[in-house]
Design a protein around this nucleic acid. Sequence first.
DNA 1: GGAGATTCCAGGGCATGGGC
DNA 2: GCCCATGCCCTGGAATCTCC
Length: 759
Amino acid sequence: MTEDEVREIAGKILGLENTDTSISGVGQITSFNQLGFSGVKDRPDGWYLPNEVSFPAIILEAKSESTTIKKAHIDELLKNLTIIEKKYKKHIGILYNGFVVKIYKDGIFLREEKELKNKEYYLSLFSENKIDTQKIYNITAKINNNLHFNFGIKNLYHRMIFTACALVAKRYGSVLIKGMNYTTFHTSIHTTLAKSFEEARRQNVKLDILLEAYSSIKMNITENQTAIDNFIESVCEISDNINSDFWNGEDVMAIFFNEFNRYKGKSESGQVFTPDHITSLMYKITEVNKDDLVLDAACGSGAFLVKAMCNMIKEAGGNSTDKAKIIKKEQLFGIELDKEIYALACANMLIHKDGKTNLEQFDARSYEAKKWIKSKKITKVLMNPPFENKYGCLDIVLNVLESLEKDKTCAFIMPDNKLETNIKKAKKILNNHYLTKIIKLPNEIFSGVTSSIFIFKSGIPQDDKKIFACAILDDGLETIKNQGRQDIKNKWEEIERYWVDVIYRQSGDSSIQWLNPNENLSYKALEKPFEISEHDFKKTVLNYILFKSNINPDEFKTRIIDFVLYNNRNNINNELIEIIKSKISLDNDNLDINATEWKKFSICGENGIFKLMHPKPRKSTEYLEEGEIPFVASGAFNNGIEKYVKTDEILDKGKCITVSAIGGFAFYQDKDFIGRGGAGSAIKILYSDRLNEKNALFICTVLQKSLSKYNFTIMLSGDKLKKEYIYLPTLGNNEIDWEYMEKYIDSIYELSNLWIQKA
DNA sequence: GGAGATTCCAGGGCATGGGC
DNA sequence: GCCCATGCCCTGGAATCTCC
């Protein structure tokens, strides 16, 4: 095709025709001067210039099929964009030669595509990430409160389903107006739902579950007319937002579901919604395209499927194309076990004018599920399976992988160490499937657990093939008071573009690791080099003396601060004032912590310094009677002592160090005690003949520094402690300098003691 | 086969302090 | 002065694994 032909065809595909609201067209002789940019002689190949200058404009630059796109062509387009920029702040530049489409958003290269699409597609590039999130949050909060307190719907999912049904009904033409009484309003929604399902039901018999769920929702109050009116108003508002041309409806619903989910109470735990920006990232890094058959076998409210549907339809050229119908009907598949969540997923798909997506309600671990998935010839899997083993996290993953043909891409969000801590199941998976990539997600994505995206290729054994791993440490989102994490600074778009590129190229970021599958199945955080300072030792010693003197550290701190900052002399001794004046900190001039050579020693492994003991399985609730015996648990304060109890049983011997499984807090126990044993918060006990109060405080400081990496999710067990090492001062050879440690603490001890006595 | 050790829990309770 | 979001600080029981 010649340049003229390319231009003509591009004009037709883009839909560049004059309308009442815009000047639009293609041509060779029209100059910018004629288009309202007086005095500019340059001539664009195609233009879309809306009357409303705050809307985005489009400039086309066409080349013949035989032209390879060069820098000069790009410069030509960019020059034209600079011209319209005086009038239009937002603009899209398109460079097209019949084969390749280069897209420029506000003068910056966005991406290259193989197919030219209609102008709405390019205009919608500006509606990405431009939703008035605040508004959606407010409406969602309003709906939730209204249904909860004015209608008396106690169950969160029922409130979500009720709202979703109202939205579906609105979408399908139900008339909802203020002033309707409860019965009319309730029936109107029910009738519209039932009618709208008739066609969809042919494909999804189970859609009736939504009707069933809707009908079964119990509410205590139905006569509050103001509440009904407010609800109708809110539903109409959300509905308008979903239908708005300016915003993407799926994003509105994602915010709506995620925001609703924040009101989750204890009784509704278990179901988790994937944040919208993560579904977007997963869609992109798995390179889903408009021809893929996409599965989510734990689809929840259907976020992945809606995301895939909207992106695929956009790529296909919009909702009005024939391809869009095929995508909805034949290319999206979801499984959800929970009946009510399944209903919610159905509603979510229906809100997006789609009752045809293939949703099934069964257990993703079952043979039934496997058979169903197999029959669908799935090509891409996007999932956030339940994390807990009791719901069969890895069983679901295996079942899905086994149900696919060879070499299909599957992405699962799972806890970082899921594969490593379930090594047998992991091996079973890797025997037949290839883990290609691990993408560590920011820790804040899900509360209480850190997660990664695991990308597999089905039907190809791992063997010794290395795994690409990288870590996204920051997603740019910030916690907003009362509103969870949001992309208020619009950082994600840029961050996502960066990571999609890094993950595609498998290079370009310093976090990248290549893991040997026989050694590691999770992203390895870099170990911090061991560092310790005088300050750490002072803290240990001061806390220990405060504990021995029965002084509350917080109260002590307050008194010192009161004096130093506010000159409050009421609670402070004159002698201490003198000490503070002369020495603001505890200087320890006698000994330099770096003077001796430090070496690495096993804590309690083979040839370790200590003998490891475990306390008997005990819990503090078994000891209700108050007494003199310390009950040592995993706390960080009061020397690890939770309380003092009375007991006749044989005690754990004192003169030892206790280590907490959470946080690695290490304390010297002088007296005999009983330790919490048996379960997660159990402590470990370390014995050595060489131990005394002073050198123990030194070692406690070092232990605490080295073991602080253990936390609620990765607890310190006896086995792990046996593999741990600490650095200690030596006599230059491999012998520990016990005397030095004692002396060092001694010098701090005296001064600290003085402080406390005078206080 | 049983006892003890370890892991698991998309965390939980509660004090605090800011907002209205 | 009350309400409730926030954030600090670490539960405890059951399932599962391991060892004798």
